[in-house]
Design a protein around this nucleic acid. Structure first.
Lengths: 117, 117
DNA sequence: CGGCATCCAAATCGATACTG
DNA sequence: CAGTATCGATTTGGATGCCG
């Protein structure tokens, strides 16, 4: 990571946001607001407890989400997007739009390739 | 990936762009234009031939870069950003800005935490 | 309920050797 | 020069069991 100065921070930004489940977690919290651990489990099919826990810890360290523990039995833990985490929203919006366009683009290319046949 | 419709394409977009070296490759090609395989190797420290090759193949499949082979000896292969790949540029710009802000934010928090001590 | 610890499987990455 | 092939190491993810 040397060549151009701009490089450095792009990958840094990506590294804080990627990880198999991080975008999904952030988007869930964005749309549904505060959620409990079990709610996240239910809303993210196929994720395991271990993965959810570890990804939440990392997001917390990066100050993208807030973790609130209620000292009671049974335990209750709530997660929500931090103020700082909300600054990611415009980027997600752009990524979503680009994703849609990209899929259309790839689909078009495939169809064209088939038609040439 | 069920809950909210927007989720799907965000992760799709991220998946096409991430990968340990993909952003670096794309940024190099963006800033320096067309580059040969060996030039990329020289400009991306620590990357191995294997990684560079595989990442280039994936980027090519996703139509983000163009690969041109000159049938000569010794071989010459040039890579450049595709028209479609150029549409990623605004996203990289945003990611870079966010990355800078994020690093500042994290640094500020660390300093505050130390001062509280 | 919301974890952590452990063990195991799979994907990813790196080093090396070889080729047209 | 620009790869391919192979092997081994590292990283990552999943399954299970246990705990306050």
């Amino acid at each position: 990571m040397t060549a151009n100065p701009i490089q450095c921070k792009v990958t840094d930004a990506l590294n804080t946001v990627v990880g198999k489940w991080k975008p999904t977690i952030l988007l869930n919290l964005h749309f549904k607001g505060t959620m409990r651990f079990s709610e996240l489990m239910n809303n993210i099919p196929d994720i395991t407890q271990k993965m959810l826990t570890s990804q939440l810890r990392e997001l917390e360290k990066e100050d993208l989400i807030v973790r609130v523990v209620y000292p009671q039995i049974p335990p209750k833990v709530e997660y929500s997007i931090s103020e700082h985490g909300k600054t990611l929203q415009p980027i997600f919006d752009m990524l979503h739009e680009w994703g849609v366009t990209h899929l259309e683009h790839m689909h078009t290319n495939t169809v064209e390739a088939l038609e040439v046949k």
